Simulated scan of single mutants.
Amino acid sequence: MIETINQSQETTILESFLELVKSPYGDFAAIGKLSHVLNDPATLQKIVAFLSLTPRGKQAFVDRPLLGKIDLQQLHQLPNHTLGHLYADHMIRNGFTPQPIKEIANDPFVFLGAHIGETHDIWHVVTGCDTDKPGEVQLEAFYTAQLDPDRLFLALLAKNLLKTAMYEVELCEQIMDGLTQGWMMGKRAKPLFGIQWNRLWAIPLEEVQTSLNIASI
């Protein structure tokens, strides 16, 4: 059972949450601050324990696999139905660049954050979630289903619901559809955490999705 937060933590969390609500979408500094105060060591330990229930997840915390250097132009030369090509196309179209290669200390919490961060856009491609607001909500719901009991993604969903209610209520139906679809997809899918995606670049995306029980959307 997750320990309840004390009054001091509650105040810090609420302040960080409101700061994120007021921030523009994609403010990674504000997201990182909220993550730091929400996912305390006790929570992170429970996430690690949950992810370690599968053989792949358990081994990932031993091997700590990272993507390594990614050449988007080279990946883009792969057949257009492969994971590598579609990932590169996603990154190039959106003007994204892969995260820089990092040295991972022998710390499961550091690896957890690094792995989730550098594979975020791969999860976008594999799940079919767009990068617009409903698509990001859909992927956040997918994360919430897959990374029990990560408090951050639940908070990000709450933040986006509040911002929708305050500023873009006309997106309500799309946001709610994304949330429900992402949650159900995440519950049905096999765990994505710990997959060594750089070994799957040449595999057709549809084949990858089928192997993970993810229906193309």
Score class of each variant (00 low, 15 high):
D150F: 12
Q7Y: 07
S8F: 08
G135L: 04
V37S: 01
S52C: 01
E10D: 06
M91K: 04
L34I: 08
I203W: 02
P65G: 09
L157K: 02
G135V: 09
G186D: 01
K163I: 07
G26I: 10
K159N: 10
T180V: 07
T54Q: 02
Q174L: 09
Y143E: 03
T144Y: 05
I203M: 12
A114I: 12
D132C: 10
A189H: 05
T97W: 07
P24Y: 00
D107A: 11
L205Q: 03
L112I: 02
L44M: 04
P204C: 08
L14Y: 09
L162I: 14
T164I: 04
H85E: 14
L112F: 14
F50C: 08
G32N: 12
Q209K: 14
L154C: 04
M166K: 06
I70E: 05
V126F: 00
A215E: 15
I104Q: 08
K190V: 09
D71H: 11
K190N: 15
K22F: 05
E10W: 02
L179F: 12
D89L: 13
V208C: 14
L38M: 08
L14E: 13
I31R: 10
V208T: 13
M1K: 04
G135I: 05
A42Q: 15
M176S: 13
A189E: 06
T54G: 02
D27Y: 10
I203Q: 15
D40L: 12
R188F: 08
A29R: 11
P55V: 05
L18W: 03
G128K: 06
I13T: 07
K163A: 05
K190M: 11
L112S: 01
F153V: 13
A88S: 07
L86M: 10
H76K: 08
P24A: 00
F28T: 04
F153D: 02
G68E: 06
E168P: 03
Q99F: 13
G182P: 06
W123K: 03
I122H: 01
S35M: 08
G186S: 01
F28R: 13
P134C: 10
H85C: 14
A158V: 07
E207W: 09
P79I: 06
P24E: 01
F50R: 10
K159W: 00
E206K: 00
R199Y: 09
K33R: 02
K133Y: 14
I195V: 14
V126G: 03
R93G: 01
L75F: 13
I217Q: 15
E173S: 15
K187T: 09
E118D: 11
N213W: 11
Y143T: 11
N39P: 05
